[in-house]
């Protein structure tokens, strides 16, 4: 799709060797994703679909098996030394659990200060000033500098993690379930912070989440991933308006409605069981073992069907099935 993006991930594969069994785990198995400058892109799927592995591979926490990660025209996997470090710095990661993302032995000020030191700022006064700016950018008061993370709420901790990531002057934030450990009532504060960072600083984001509703509002484009592969790609409007892959339809159907009358009237598609093991993924369409509409042909690889401009679904019956008619 967008070849002129800020980051283009091309056919990326990350396989692990299982410590105990020695089997090859194909966590991420040929995924192509692109993120444009100042764009928020969503990556959704259930636990075990490989979405976190993809994010971790992009920032270098996992080693890819093959593929390309092209950042500003250069393939990160062919870079070494200083130039690699310089590029890597511009891609930062936000973890799901903000509590374990902060050292218990550092104050908030020390944690951000250390990030600035790593980033090469030698002047202590300049660092202090920058720390104050970063805290202000994420909506935290300066006094919080002398506090420890255990004295703060989950939402505040996640803000600190974002401020620390910003210390590296990144162009992209890879956010792995950034709000799923927070109270629903607090999530909006953090989600709006990402929108604000995009609008004010042109920050691009890869928003990794299992909750399609959270991603929908923020992301311009959404990738749906299942068992190491992409199932459907689309502009938010198209993907949520006319979801074409049965997996996307099932994910959407799982989102509860807060109105009890509509909830009672609605027909739900419940997927059975969990994501199968990525050691031995099903042949052909990987979703076929849980798909309510699977047929014999699904044992062959599904074609990438173009459903519209910027909207692709990898299903033999894309656009022909509708598991959960949406109410709107």
């Amino acid at each position: 799709m967008m070849s002129g993006g800020l980051i283009n991930i091309v056919d990326l594969k990350t396989h692990f060797r299982d410590r105990r069994t020695g089997a090859e785990v194909k966590a991420c198995d040929g995924v192509t994703v692109s993120i444009g400058e100042g764009e928020i892109v969503g990556l959704v799927g259930e636990s075990g679909c490989g979405k976190s592995t993809l994010g971790r591979t992009i920032v270098g926490l996992e080693r890819p098996t093959s593929g390309k990660i092209i950042f500003r025209g250069e393939d990160l996997l062919s870079l070494r030394g200083r130039r690699l470090a310089e590029s890597r710095r511009q891609i930062q990661y936000i973890f799901q659990d903000p509590y374990s993302s902060l050292s218990t032995r550092q104050t908030i000020g020390q944690a951000i200060d250390e990030a600035l030191v790593i980033n090469g700022e030698k002047n202590a006064k300049a660092r202090r000033k920058r720390t104050e700016e970063l805290l202000a950018a994420v909506g935290l008061p300066t006094q919080i500098m002398d506090r420890y993370s255990r004295e703060m709420s989950g939402g505040q901790r996640q803000r600190v993690c974002i401020a620390r990531a910003l210390a590296a002057n990144p162009k992209v934030l890879i956010c792995d379930e950034p709000v799923s450990s927070l109270d629903v009532s607090i999530r909006a504060q953090i989600m709006n912070l990402f929108l604000q960072l995009r609008d004010e600083m042109g920050m691009a984001c890869l928003l990794i989440a299992h909750d399609l509703a959270v991603v929908r509002q923020a992301a311009q484009r959404v990738y749906v991933m299942y068992l190491g592969r992409l199932m459907e790609i689309g502009e938010s409007g198209a993907l949520y308006g006319t979801p074409s892959h049965p997996y996307t339809q099932a994910l959407l159907s799982a989102i509860p409605d807060t109105d009890p009358r509509q909830e009672r009237a609605r027909q739900r598609v419940l997927l059975n069981g969990d994501v199968p093991s990525p050691v031995n993924p099903p042949t052909g369409c990987r979703f076929r073992t849980r798909c309510p509409t699977a047929q014999a042909i699904c044992e062959t690889s599904p074609p990438a069907k173009v459903m519209g401009p910027d909207h692709i679904a990898a299903c033999h019956f894309a656009g022909e099935v509708n598991l959960a008619p949406t109410q709107h």
């Binding site: 926490l61 993302s101 990531a165």
Partner: peptide
């Protein structure tokens, strides 16, 4: 493998640090 060490790695902290 705690996120706080991993975030230092992503920030570019050296092994020694």
């Amino acid at each position: 493998n705690q996120p706080y060490i991993e975030s230092l790695r992503v920030l570019g902290a050296s092994r020694t640090r």
